[in-house]
Design a protein around this nucleic acid. Structure first.
Lengths: 168, 168
DNA sequence: GTGCCTGCAAATGTTTTGCATAGCT
DNA sequence: AGCTATGCAAAACATTTGCAGGCAC
């Protein structure tokens, strides 16, 4: 779990015989400027560049390729919160590292920190001889509002007052 | 996090106006008989029934529908370990509840238990008023063998001696 | 009998890949 | 120059959905 800047990224790439490109730099920039707590899907990122920085637009394939690369390098965390699409955020070092609590009915997600989870992760990966890249505790549950509306209830209507408005 | 038997499942379904069907019972059976530590994808389950119990084969759509339902009821846990396909296993109560350590290069997964993770999860969901369904700590890292072969290394070759033989 | 379920096939949405060209080092 | 990266369009995959008939309650 490191925090990268552009030149660290470049070095890491070059050591591997890979190259720094404007696209990769742009993607890193977007994530570094992302408000804390936000995370993007591949398509979110594509749309963001299309709309907000049309001069730096990147093809979807490149975005997918870059997200995978940067995740494998430990630069990004891949989150599987809502159904259907993965989200990404910077994999931040210790004090900023956080976990997620997700309502299975409305997909509302709450972030929280936990030193003990980090401790467990370091201990466990160390014991098995793993080089730690990332650890994520994801808690699934049903939130208060959904509970008030009655739970369990019909699976068709997995919606509660916190239900998301759009997709993403 | 409960452990269900067939009649508990039936009751829960009926309370919701849903029905117990041979298909749903079969799927529960398969998971209950699954060796500890194994988890199945939708396709795994489909193949398993096709090959091992041809007389109980179930369509893929029904399998997907059932897995989602059973996950939302808290009966199954949905695991996102390897890339591409979700895996499922029984969502077991406390003493059997476990987490996963995954090598990003070979997808080898190691299970481990942790009371403190469970404690954090109960505390966090309680604080936010969530009804806890499941908690999963997933640790991503690179395993010893992959490290020995040099890491980081070219992203094409995310394989190490533990690399899986088939798909699944 | 009513309304939920299933199976089939078609549809959907996301992610991957082949290939020719462009661009890092 | 040499080899990696990009963009495009097509392909591959996993998962979802519409619908007609079947079945649990």
């Amino acid at each position: 779990m490191y925090s990268y800047d552009s030149s660290t990224f470049r070095n890491e790439l070059n050591q591997l015989g890979l190259r720094m490109t404007p696209q990769r730099e742009t993607i890193l920039d977007v994530f570094r400027e992302l408000p804390k707590g936000k995370h993007l899907s591949a398509e979110d990122l594509h749309n963001h560049l299309q709309e907000v920085e049309p001069d730096r637009k990147i093809s979807l394939s490149t975005i997918y390729r870059s997200l995978k690369l940067m995740t494998h390098l430990g630069l990004l965390r891949e989150l599987e919160l809502a159904e259907g699409h993965k989200h990404y955020e910077l994999n931040q070092p210790h004090p900023h590292h956080h976990h997620h609590l997700v309502c299975v009915r409305c997909n509302r997600t709450i972030e929280f920190k936990s030193d003990s989870v980090l401790k467990v992760s370091m201990k466990t990966s160390g014991k098995e001889g793993f080089h730690l890249l990332d650890c994520q505790l994801t808690i699934h549950g049903v939130c208060v509002e959904a509970l008030k509306r009655g739970w369990p209830s019909v699976p068709e209507e997995w919606m509660c007052p916190h239900a998301p408005t759009g997709k993403s």
